[in-house]
């Protein structure tokens, strides 16, 4: 029998990936970005997307990474999970991020990107009928998150705060 060693799958900014127990999946330094975890608690498999922008129609050019946007990232993640035999109706979600790192009083809409990302993620998940089981969003601090598909726990680390588990 082969004993599989536990690995941490890392997801970069504007990227996505999938992990199954005993592996965990992690993304670092979420600021205004949002980390979206879609998981199946029976098959103990989870996908994670680290999105930067709410909507792919914001793209001013074609052919960019789809995992950067909330809409295309969630769509692709749902389909990638379907491809490995996980039906969308089994999926549950946990989300974290969407902070406002600097309190700019600027009229620049891009500075409100954190809250806009959160809104977009929630409405897209709703349209897929994927329930959000837990969230840690907003605020003014960055987050590094790691999801364990075995326990379905999401560990959240922030500067000067105790690790949080949701």
């Amino acid at each position: 029998m082969v004993i599989k060693t536990k690995q941490v799958i890392r997801v970069g900014i504007g990227d996505m990936n999938i992990a199954s127990s005993p592996d965990t999946i992690r993304t670092s330094g979420l600021g205004s970005c949002v980390g979206i975890i879609l998981y199946d608690d029976v098959k103990k498999t989870a996908g994670l997307a680290h999105i930067m922008l709410p909507d792919s129609t914001l793209a001013k050019k074609q052919g960019m990474k789809r995992a950067k946007y909330a809409d295309t990232a969630i769509y692709d993640l749902v389909h990638a999970l379907k491809d490995i035999g996980i039906s969308t109706y089994r999926l549950k979600a946990k989300i974290a991020g969407g902070a406002q790192m600097f309190q700019l009083s600027s009229s620049n809409d891009m500075m409100r990107i954190g809250p806009r990302n959160i809104e977009a993620v929630k409405s897209i998940l709703l349209s897929f009928r994927i329930p959000i089981m837990a969230e840690d969003v907003g605020g003014t601090t960055g987050r590094t998150i790691e999801f364990d598909p075995a326990s379905c726990e999401l560990h959240i680390r922030s500067v000067n705060k105790r690790e949080k588990v949701i």
Partner: peptide, 22 residues
């Protein structure tokens, strides 16, 4: 001024850019 994770801070400067480039 902020004391936080590099990723969380520098990504603020990448948002504008991310609309036209990876």
């Amino acid at each position: 001024l902020a004391q936080d994770l590099v990723g969380a801070i520098l990504s603020v400067g990448l948002i504008e850019l991310s609309q036209v480039s990876d």
